[in-house]
């Protein structure tokens, strides 16, 4: 299924934050797609065990163009257009990983990942454990997730909690091109299965000065993308730009944490920030009930209840299927973040 690649993206992110601007002169500006593509090119060149497979990833270069040029450079044996079956893509990738390759399958939209759910949850996540450590399974599943592109139920969902809840998987969500490249390179160089969720809403809108060089961004380390003293706002993926947009519009000093890795998440950075600000909120576009925010809040109150001056609130997607026409009523935005911030501050 191909959705128009010209999407209704948020333009704010690249205007608001550019933490790497000092190095701009020597670095090309890339969007997230280009950064992902650059990481794939770099790692495929460096390691001939890397295999890209999926629907339309070959000559076409993927419906979002993330695998553009790989087939021409590395050939059909390493960039495989598979038959149309997510179960087949992931099952095949697992078999490859068991026998020494490092597959990086693409699932075209994370909404289409569910035919492969059994392979991911019962197989990929459990292979190392169930074999007593004999069979590691280093597969990095790249998949675009999230709403805001007029995609309806099946091109908009945020399924991260399902994978975070599955022991044995690492879950990573970059919010910008610099991290996208660094995190993807890290993911391809470690030996555990990874669900790499790419925020498609800002695939092109989020731009950054990305080094052409080889660099990695550590898994399990959050980034404080804006320092603040009054309230900690914990978020990830496409919602980082919403958080920053909100933070620009208020006098409340908000500390914005971009988790970057959701499992294992950076509890130290979160607790240190909450200990400083004494207030916290969570922002994600996935549905609220049993969303990742619930886990974050539980973890904070277990460790820092006595530091809190107010309850930890959430701005999330609603517990409805993802809507089509009303998707911008569904999605969290800066206004809702601010209303939540004010509620916390006035507690």
């Amino acid at each position: 299924m191909v959705i128009a690649t010209k999407t209704n993206e948020i333009a704010a992110w690249s205007l608001i934050v550019s933490p790497w601007k000092d190095e701009k002169a020597t670095m090309p500006t890339m969007n997230i797609i280009q950064a992902v593509n650059d990481a794939l090119h770099l790692e495929m060149k460096r390691n001939d065990k890397i295999i890209v497979l999926g629907e339309d990833v070959g000559k076409f270069g993927g419906v979002f163009r993330a695998t553009s040029g790989l087939s021409e450079t590395f050939g059909d044996d390493r960039v495989i257009d598979t038959p149309l079956s997510e179960e087949g893509i992931i099952g095949t990738a697992i078999g490859m990983a068991l026998y020494g390759l490092r597959p990086v399958p693409e699932i075209q939209f994370s909404d289409f990942i569910f035919p492969a759910f059994d392979q991911i949850v019962n197989e990929l996540a459990k292979f190392r454990y169930r074999s007593g450590g004999q069979y590691p399974c280093p597969v990095v599943i790249r998949t675009p997730y999230g709403g805001g592109i007029r995609g309806g139920h099946y091109h908009s969902q945020s399924p991260e909690a399902l994978f975070i809840h599955t022991p044995g998987l690492k879950v990573i969500t970059p919010s910008n091109p610099v991290d996208a490249k660094g995190l993807l390179l890290s993911a391809m160089r470690q030996n555990d299965p990874v669900i790499f969720l790419e925020p498609k809403r800002i695939y092109r809108a989020s731009k950054g000065d990305v080094s052409k060089e080889d660099y990695t961004t550590p898994i399990g380390k959050a980034a404080i993308v804006q320092e603040g003293t009054d309230c900690t706002l914990i978020t990830y993926g496409a919602m980082v730009s919403v958080a920053l947009e909100a933070a620009q519009q208020t006098d409340v000093s908000i500390e914005v944490i971009d988790l970057r890795t959701l499992l294992p998440f950076d509890i130290e950075t979160v607790i240190a920030s909450v200990t400083k600000t004494n207030r916290a909120m969570v922002l994600h576009e996935a549905p609220k009930t049993c969303g990742f925010g619930a886990e974050l809040i539980a973890s904070i109150q277990e460790r820092a209840l006595d530091q809190l001056h107010a309850p930890i609130l959430r701005v999330c997607g609603f517990d409805t299927p993802f809507p089509y026409t009303l998707e911008f009523e569904y999605l969290p935005n800066a206004d809702r973040v601010l209303s939540c911030v004010h509620e916390i501050m006035e507690w």
Binding site: E87, G88, I90, G91, T92, A93, I94, G95, M96, A97, L98, Y99, G100, L101, P103, Q119, E123
Partner: peptide, 10 residues
């Protein structure tokens, strides 16, 4: 079954 196919390809 699909895993064996991947292993065969590898």
């Amino acid at each position: 079954i699909p895993q064996a196919v991947g292993a065969a390809m590898a």
